[in-house]
Design a protein around this nucleic acid. Structure first.
Length: 425
RNA sequence: GUGGGUAUAGCUCAGUUGGUUAGAGCGCCAGGUUGUGGCCCUGGAGGUCGCCGGUUCAAGUCCGGUUACUCACCCCA
């Protein structure tokens, strides 16, 4: 073996790259339909940005970042998520000084040092959106509806939308205390990681998969009973708007999510058939993050979607929608002057926007026909000595094998017009 | 970071209790048609059996190590 790709990375080869293009097209189109505009931030940032933005205690920051020093001894990190860089850019360019809310989306690679498995890679692609400057629950719902529309338009129908609220810094402390006191006596029975969560972020114990932890939290107090009136009203409004939009959802009181910065609404969208890594998207509200990062108090809400996971789910659920379209035509020739004519006509056809190819290996007509068939060409233009003498190309329609003669001068225009007609067979 | 599974042709995989020139299907190339694709037939190219070491007269096969892939845990998209 020669040099292989780094662990957890993928080459996206022809055949699959077309699927990515379909997905990316839908993302751009739908984000723009909702009034979001694309932002492109650097692939790497100062390490400090993620330490402050995501939270030093999270797994991502404590053990999953690709961090390195550049030649100027700056500590830089390949971005592990999209929100912190967008917030940084929002502040750096003082976008809060313009008309609010600011609605942004991004598409691109993220990097986390983890053991790869199905649906999880070290370099993976996310698209996400962030909306700054409004605390309106209708905006939370817009944010939830957007990825759902992307899934549906691509043909992904089977997924589950889970929502929850995790309160705000005013009401959450009381709930955390209630949770701690509920678990105080049984703390020693919790799994190892949950024992450390007990002090640091007890709510994360709620989504532990250990059977004993689940059992111990079964009758734990619910945050709904501890919400301040603002958070309670907000959550009720979110649910009401979701119902108005006829978005099916389940309220999962155990959904808490990993980042420290979330407030109020959190949500996650799952596809069961994906295996252990079943979340195709997730997000929530983060009304304090912008201020914590040194900006003016600014509400925010956003989500991130794992594009590999969407494609995996799509490959399971939507088969044909992702098939790449083939070539329009192929020009077969016999070398010498016939090749010159083919090269000229191919050039003209391509200038007219048709997808055409020709042989560059001096192969037999039979081999050229085979290549044409394989490329998906609808027609083959055959240019031999006889055609040259008559100044006419022979056009063979591949779906039924019929042939016709067309003047070289008009062939390109003729095929360009024909190319727009639907294939009947 | 922890655990399980796997590693033979471009791809998907066979390969007997260790035994001579390691096979199939698909794909690729050529021919069957001195200028015609798909179906069919014939032929061909293509492999340091992941890597290193050990046992043995003999290792693709057994043993040890190692690397990669893969699934799961943790966590997340």
């Amino acid at each position: 073996m020669t040099i292989a790709r780094p662990r957890g990375t993928n080459d996206i080869l022809p055949g699959e790259s077309e699927q990515w293009q379909v997905l990316e097209e839908a993302i751009h189109r739908i984000c723009q339909a909702y009034g979001y505009r694309e932002i492109r931030t650097p692939i790497f940032e100062h390490t400090e940005l993620f330490e402050r933005g995501i939270g030093e205690t999270t797994d991502i920051v404590s053990k999953e970042m690709y961090t390195f020093s550049d030649r100027g001894q700056r500590s830089l990190t390949l971005r592990p998520e999209g929100t912190a860089p967008v917030v940084r850019s929002f502040l750096e360019h003082k976008l809060y000084g313009q008309a609010l809310p600011t609605k942004l989306y991004y598409v691109g690679p993220m990097f986390r040092y983890e053991r790869p498995q199905a649906g999880r890679y070290r370099q993976f692609y996310q698209f996400g959106v962030e909306a700054f400057g409004s605390g309106d629950p209708a905006l939370d719902v817009e944010i939830i509806a957007m990825p759902i529309q992307v899934y549906k338009e691509l043909g992904l129908e089977t997924f589950e939308v889970c929502i929850n609220t995790i309160g705000c810094p005013d009401c959450r402390p009381a709930y955390r205390e209630a949770l701690r006191s509920h678990l105080a006596d049984s703390k020693s029975q919790l799994c190892r990681s949950c024992q450390t969560k007990y002090d640091r972020s007890p709510m994360r114990i709620l989504d532990c998969k250990e059977a004993t932890c689940q059992e111990l939290t079964k009758d734990a107090p619910l945050i709904l009973d501890y919400l301040c009136s603002g958070c309670r009203d907000h959550f009720a409004e979110v649910k009401r708007y979701l119902e108005l939009l006829e978005v099916d959802f389940v309220h999962d009181p155990r959904l808490v999510r990993g980042f420290d910065y979330y407030t109020k609404t959190v949500f996650e969208i799952k596809v069961e058939s994906l295996g252990a890594q079943d979340a195709v998207g997730g997000g929530g509200r983060y009304d304090r993050l912008v201020e914590e990062m040194g900006g003016p108090p600014t509400a925010g809400v956003g989500y991130g979607v794992g594009m590999e996971r969407v494609l995996l789910a799509l490959q399971q659920q939507a088969g044909d929608a992702l098939k790449p379209s083939g070539m329009d035509g192929f020009l077969a020739q016999f070398g010498g002057a016939t090749k010159e004519q083919a090269v000229v006509l191919a050039h003209r056809l391509r200038a007219l926007g048709l997808k055409v190819d020709l042989d560059y290996l001096d192969r037999s007509l039979k081999a050229q026909m085979k290549a044409a068939n394989r490329s998906g060409a609808r027609w083959v233009m055959i240019i031999g000595q006889e055609e040259l003498e008559n100044n006419q190309a022979r056009i063979r329609w591949m779906y039924d094998g019929t042939e016709e003669a067309v003047d070289f001068d008009t062939a390109a225009q003729y095929l360009a017009a024909k190319g727009k007609e639907p294939i009947t067979q």
